[in-house]
Simulated scan of single mutants.
Amino acid sequence: MKIEAFQPQHASSALKTLDIELRALEALRAALQMPDLARAVEQAIQILSATPGRVIVTGMGKSGHIARKIAATMRSTGTSALYLHPGEASHGDMGVITQDDVVLAITWSGETTELGDILHYCRNFGVKLIVATARADSTAGRAADICLTMPSVREACPNELAPTSSTTLQLVLGDALAVALIEARGFTSSDFHAFHPGGNLGARLCTIQDLMGTGESVPRVGRDASLTSATIEMSRKRYGCTAVVDEDDRLVGAFTDGDLRRCIAVHDLKDNIGLHMSPSPVTVTGDTLATDALRVMNENAVSVLFVVDGDRLSGIVHMHDIVKAGVA
């Protein structure tokens, strides 16, 4: 395959596009600092966060693609949302909208013909309508209960026709709404994990409670145990160590393969484990993120962590368990 010579004008064109869209974002930022749009966004967040139903996000063409993404972002961050295609809505899917829902319509011109039936439906059935548009005086803008008026900006397309800067603003405004809803709802990383159980993101958000060994799989001996019994317990389990607990199952120490090697040649295997254990083992709690537990392991140069609930032993986790889960 013939490779064309480097054409610096292409990179210049790309930079020009970035400059135009950056100016558009600066215009949106400036608009958000003005009372009209700031007040409208505040009202929109209050309605979206308080709705007992769902956020129905709709739009046509390129705005429709942005609407799909906004709905997906809201869903993944705790706001029940779905995308409704305006054409399908006019042919039977309007029934997905209930009076408990809020409709968020994305339309740059505000004159998108295909949105007409949804606008009428919202007015006739008392469904709250939020419209994001560059024209507050448009058909959609006038129909809205809340109009999020974006600044008119230049498209990056050399013909100033293809949606480029405009869709960037729509996307960023959608992200701003979604993030504000995260804060309004108090959405946590644990909540986020519930919506993202798979893949690398899910692995990063899992907690030690999801990975740790519990019950009979946890190596443990009483503090009156001998070196021999502790060695047998370590051999029976797969962690290369054993917890040392008191009569109330409180963690009082740990005995590792390294401890055994250091004392086996010079001490009697009938010695009490308390003479040779490490009295302050590194611990985490069950709600510790796996990523944080891995950091603790690296900082303390250990491959195993005991998991405690208060001062009671509740589990054990090996570095291999964390790596196997896809965290590292």
Rank of each mutant, 00 (worst) to 15 (best):
T168S: 04
D191G: 00
L181A: 00
G174F: 13
T167V: 06
C157L: 07
A162T: 09
L169P: 04
L177T: 03
L173A: 04
S166Q: 14
T167I: 05
T168Q: 09
T168F: 04
L171S: 05
G186D: 13
V172D: 14
A176I: 07
S189K: 07
S166I: 05
A180H: 12
L173F: 15
T164G: 00
T164D: 08
T168W: 12
L161E: 12
L181K: 11
S189I: 03
Q170G: 03
I182R: 10
T164R: 12
L171F: 05
L161R: 12
D191K: 08
A176R: 13
T167C: 08
L171D: 10
L173T: 13
A180Y: 13
A184R: 15
V172A: 10
D191Q: 09
A180R: 15
V179P: 02
A178Y: 12
V172M: 13
F187G: 00
R185S: 03
V179W: 04
E183F: 02
T188K: 07
P163T: 03
A180V: 03
V172L: 07
E160H: 06
D175T: 00
A162H: 08
L177W: 11
A162C: 02
I182A: 01
L169A: 01
E183D: 12
F187E: 02
L181T: 04
L177Q: 11
S166N: 10
A180W: 14
E160R: 07
S189Y: 06
P163A: 01
L169H: 14
S166L: 07
S189T: 04
V179I: 15
I182L: 06
R185P: 01
A162N: 09
D175G: 02
L181S: 02
C157G: 00
E183N: 10
L173H: 12
A176H: 09
T188M: 06
A176V: 06
G174M: 10
L161P: 05
